[in-house]
Write a protein that binds this DNA or RNA. Structure first.
Lengths: 148, 148
DNA sequence: AATATTATTTGCAATATGCAAGTATCTAGC
DNA sequence: GCTAGATACTTGCATATTGCAAATAATATT
């Protein structure tokens, strides 16, 4: 049986995660980190800075600066919370929504293409296994995963 | 069934790939990219710069600079090839070998801990599925995978 | 021998990162 | 009600990283 670590090494590099840039939407370059931020803002309902940074396990200062960048790029909007003036609620602009959708589509297209090399049973097995893996990792007591 | 993209998003962030730094071995901080370079040098037999950069799908100039850094850190050694003076063969120093082993151990320990949350059948299924996924991705005709 | 190609490095300009410290707001305790 | 402590986020600081374009040296092709 194949060495476990090798499998995850190959997976990481095939995801393109060793390069800073992720995708170009129109003339905008989006990095991996930005892509994840945009995705999470889109997914959560009216999330605060801290919520998104915690979800992504990112350093808050780096996160704050990335948000600044995304605001400048007009992809993200920050709105002070009514209940607590320290808290900012994040949302996507129309442009941000467009970028999120574009990334989503190209990722799903890629996944569909990859899965097209498998039969139906294999597809379901792989999906279920990733679910299983994600769940097992969420149960891990190790505070930060050294899986890079 | 769970959205495919969501599964891979969660997987990426659980691997800790959204943070630059990967691990600390003694007083040395190793980034994700460096970790992959060290791993690949350790794995291949007398690899050249280009071979490793190609394997990792990294830009050669960024790669060259990372190697310079690893040489300065005394983890990697560059030796001109006898057959072709343009080519440099990469190898790990004793220190580099130690760092590679340390990373390997902590990754395998983590994986063992994660897999301990599964039964034997689930373990084998997950392993097989990652193999399948890696293979399917290698067959993909998409030149660069937008999976960030 | 001259020219084209290749392996790697460097110039350049821009961008990213995380620890420490700062600012404004909220909460807890008196 | 007031104040000290805690919290959410930002900024200072110093350093690190990235990728396109160009350069240099070695090899291959004509």
């Amino acid at each position: 049986m194949e060495n476990k670590r090798e499998l995850f090494q190959v997976l990481t590099r095939r995801f393109g995660l060793l390069n800073k840039n992720c995708c170009s939407i129109g003339s905008v370059d989006i990095s991996t980190v930005q892509s994840h931020i945009i995705y999470e803002i889109d997914k959560q309902h009216a999330p605060s800075m801290q919520q998104v940074a915690d979800t992504l396990a990112m350093d808050i200062t780096t996160f704050s600066r990335q948000i600044q960048k995304l605001v400048k790029m007009e992809l993200v909007k920050k709105t002070p919370s009514e209940q607590d003036k320290r808290i900012y609620i994040l949302s996507l602009t129309v442009q941000g929504k467009f970028v999120a959708t574009s990334i989503d589509q190209s990722m799903n297209a890629y996944l569909d293409e990859v899965f097209s090399h498998m039969n139906e049973f294999e597809r379901e097995t792989v999906i279920r296994s990733i679910e299983l893996l994600n769940k097992a990792m969420s149960k891990s007591h190790v505070c930060c995963s050294p899986m890079c």
